[in-house]
Design a protein around this nucleic acid. Structure first.
Lengths: 195, 195
DNA sequence: ATAACGGGTGACCGAACAGTAACGGGCCGT
DNA sequence: ACGGCCCGTTACTGTTCGGTCACCCGTTAT
């Protein structure tokens, strides 16, 4: 049934549809039949494009993670001072969240169910984000400690975003990014002085 | 087999054991047989104490959430100034994390798999924590905005803790709490001035 | 016309696993 | 000594779901 599509287009469509389904219902609560139905096809079609449920899921995580990474990386690289890097970074992050709701929920939403493999993937994405932030933290704080604070700052953005997205609140990523960047920057300087 | 226990003791033991196994392997990756085996008992015994797997899991979440709530609430109520409340609150939070590793992972770890019901429970716990923090934020910021920043500050603690716990790093909750409280407090004042 | 190809389907398999029914055996009070 | 009580076990059922097999049909090329 349902409109024959050329293979690459079908593959794209499956990715689009399944990111929505997985984001809202979680990995384990979503069966391959659910995905297939949402895509308007039957199960075997999915297996023509992906080796397994896990494989499909990992492809989604990978794509979403890459988009996040690129957005933040590009934004940060356009800044000069540390303070500006913080601003640009957070703004890019919230811009990503705002325009890619489902990807955010998939990676960081409350429903994000995780087995061994996807846990590692998501930890890697978080760790990369933190690692990108770490240099912004005063150099006189030692490495492991820097890394720790960086994870905190990532969690800060995550907490805010999860609240807003799951509550369905609209927001301006520029304004929000500015505020959270201010918070982070001022906060870091305080830790620096006392640490 | 295996040493007959009076019902209440067995119930406690099951709770103790299952919080560990769920925390480390997640909800869906842990079968009731796994839990039973870890408790040195067989499956039907579990069902003498809990109606379902879901029921057992919810009991664990409830207990862990209550301990967290009480710890933070008590600590905050012993403080006088806002700044001190922030300090005491974060210190209590990290103290809880330090001495109740498994409970933290259960609620906030990467492996915390969640279906509809547990998602709601955990959101409620997070929201309560945020709600307790919200009043600390400058009163001239309006309500919804306060709530949002509060969720950010909760995420901050969560991000730091997850990093440390999952990496197996030891930490002093007093020192860490002081630092994160400094960060949060100084950060909030900055948002306040610019907001 | 017809063969070949590629996208799609219906029906099925096997394993994992939540939950249950029926039964066993030590320890108590009498 | 014995009957009931409580904690436990063995063995099973039913279902859900990931994954596959065999087949179908419209389109294009010869």
């Amino acid at each position: 049934m349902s409109l024959r599509l050329p293979a690459p287009a079908r593959r794209e469509q499956i990715l689009d549809v399944s990111v929505q389904v997985f984001a809202h219902r979680g990995f384990h609560s979503t069966s391959m039949n659910d995905v297939a139905e949402a895509a308007g096809v039957t199960k075997p079609v999915l297996y023509q494009h992906f080796d397994s449920k896990q494989d499909l899921y990992m492809a989604l995580l990978e794509e979403a993670g890459a988009r996040l990474r690129n957005a933040v990386h590009k934004a940060v690289s356009e800044a000069t001072t540390g303070k500006q890097q913080t601003e640009f970074g957070y703004k890019a992050y919230f811009r990503w969240v705002a325009q890619d709701h489902d990807a955010f929920l998939l990676l960081f939403g409350s429903r994000a169910n995780r087995d061994e493999e996807s846990t590692i993937a998501i930890r890697r994405i978080t760790a990369e984000a933190a690692h990108a932030i770490a240099p912004l933290i005063a150099a006189d704080i030692e490495g492991e400690h820097q890394e720790m604070l960086a994870h905190g700052l990532v969690g800060l953005a995550e907490g805010v975003s999860r609240h807003l997205v799951e509550k369905g609140v609209q927001f301006d990523p520029e304004v929000l990014g500015q505020q959270i960047a201010d918070l982070a920057w001022a906060g870091l300087r305080a830790v620096h002085r006392n640490g």
